[in-house]
Amino acid sequence: MSKRSSVAKSKTVVFVMGLWFFAFTLAWGAQATTICDDVGREVEIPFPCERIISLSPSNTEIVFALSLAEKLVGVTTYCNYPEEAREKEKVGTLNEINLEKVVELEPDLVLASSLTPPEVVGRLEGLGITVFVLDPHSIDEVIGDVEKVGIISGAEDKGQELKEAMEQKIEDIKSKVSHLSPEERPTVFHLIWHEPLWTAGKDTFINEFITLAGGQNVVADLSGYITVDLEEFVRRNPDIITVVENPGEGGDLSYQFLLSDGRLRMIKAIQDHKVFPVDGDIVSRSGPRVVEALYMYACIIHPEIFGEYEYQK
């Protein structure tokens, strides 16, 4: 073989490989500019992402947790955490969004929730506004959302950081209760409202909190958020009861009910005075504070491992 032809051959190979490499990068780069949201929509990552609107309290909390507070230009009337969120411009409630307001604020990214009416999402899309729908059903999915929001808002690094922190905390709690046998896991009943008795079965966040924190959901055989018979409640005889309180609105009627209705006197949780009010904003939101919620449950269920639970009104 002549020296000339082997050099030519290697050049061709390099050239072809270069072509391949170039094509591959191009393809990969194209894929990298869209991300899938929680309802299966392929959303293009906006660039730049300077103005964000949140359409639910949990989304707002995510945005703040990612240190993107300055970029947040619109929130809902229910967004009350952290305190700074209250001062942001309001664009509506959970189900009623003022489209004009949203458009006026010229957002680069709108973070919607499962409660946002689909027509609103459609309209915003039609107007060329990037909408990303968040609808997590488990703690893992919440963490996934945090990561995704980080990516789509240009705070990928912070997102990763937060994700790891959350996973770490969860792992921490999990590990401390993993050794417990079923008998060592108290039964827990979560009361959302008392007339009728409204609780959370499996496939709910509450269920996860209870289970991961080393307890057992006393209505784990039922699915979703359901109402149960008072009789059933007495029969199931939970060891611990957590009850939702909505801070600031005097909404502790359910807690009062638990303490005052004499028919509950035979329930173990009542007898042992293990009735714990929990902040509705923390346990009912699918934002970064799920970790805090989990920790609350851990303290409630296993104070001997995690310390006493303290409830601040």
């Binding site: 229910y78 409630t93 409202w193 008392h194 007339e195 109402t227 008072l230 909505n246 209705d261």
Partner: peptide, 20 residues
Amino acid sequence: AGEDLHQLIFWTMGGFWNSS
């Protein structure tokens, strides 16, 4: 009421839960 909606809905549907 917004978030308190569910409580009212139950009441307007009528029922005997928690009767004593």
